[in-house]
């Protein structure tokens, strides 16, 4: 089993990958239920943020409780605060990939908003105002960056370094 042959950092990375997928699904589902734009229905979007934060907290509590139970059942008494040089190296490499990704997302968001402002008959997301695109785009970019960071970590752990 993957969890039995992994340290706490890798187990946390697995939880984070699942977390980003669940929260991205939750937030996307919430967006489809919005009835207006940020300019006219700001309270709906703020409520969606609040419910997303609450869902995140509930998910994290449940996931780490399950992890603690699994570790106890497996008799894994390793110090969870122990982060060694290999963990730091893997995190540094993964962070580099994640921030390439973040830079790309931000460039795409601003190029889209610029094009929407200057090009007539711009074909993409014509019914989404720039501020809404920016707000939701930043949210998804954050989740994507976290996903890339943790998925890269898992890949490196599985590859061994």
């Amino acid at each position: 089993m993957i969890f039995k042959n992994s340290n706490f950092s890798e187990q946390t990375a697995w939880i984070s990958v699942i977390f980003t997928l669940v929260i991205a699904w939750y937030y996307a589902n919430g967006i489809t239920q919005l009835e207006g734009t940020f300019a006219s229905h700001a309270e709906q979007i703020v409520a969606l943020w609040a419910s997303t934060i609450i869902a995140s907290i509930i998910f994290v509590i449940i996931a780490f409780t399950i992890l603690a139970v699994i570790r106890k059942v497996n008799g894994d008494g390793e110090d969870i605060s122990l982060i060694d040089e290999r963990d730091e190296l893997i995190e540094a490499r993964a962070t580099r990939w994640a921030y390439y990704n973040l830079s790309t997302c931000i460039i795409i968001l601003f190029v889209h908003i610029f094009c929407q402002g200057v090009i007539t008959n711009y074909p993409f997301f014509t019914n989404v105002p720039p501020i809404d695109f920016l707000i939701h785009g930043l949210m998804f970019s954050g989740l994507l960056v976290e996903f890339v960071l943790r998925a890269t970590q898992i890949y490196r752990y599985r590859k061994a370094a």
């Binding site: 890798e10 122990l82 060694d84 040089e85 290999r86 752990y157």
Partner: peptide, 19 residues
Amino acid sequence: IGVTRQTIAAIEAGKYSPS
């Protein structure tokens, strides 16, 4: 030596070079 067991396993397998 203050590392995780997985790091020792990776070194032994030749998949990680320690500092």
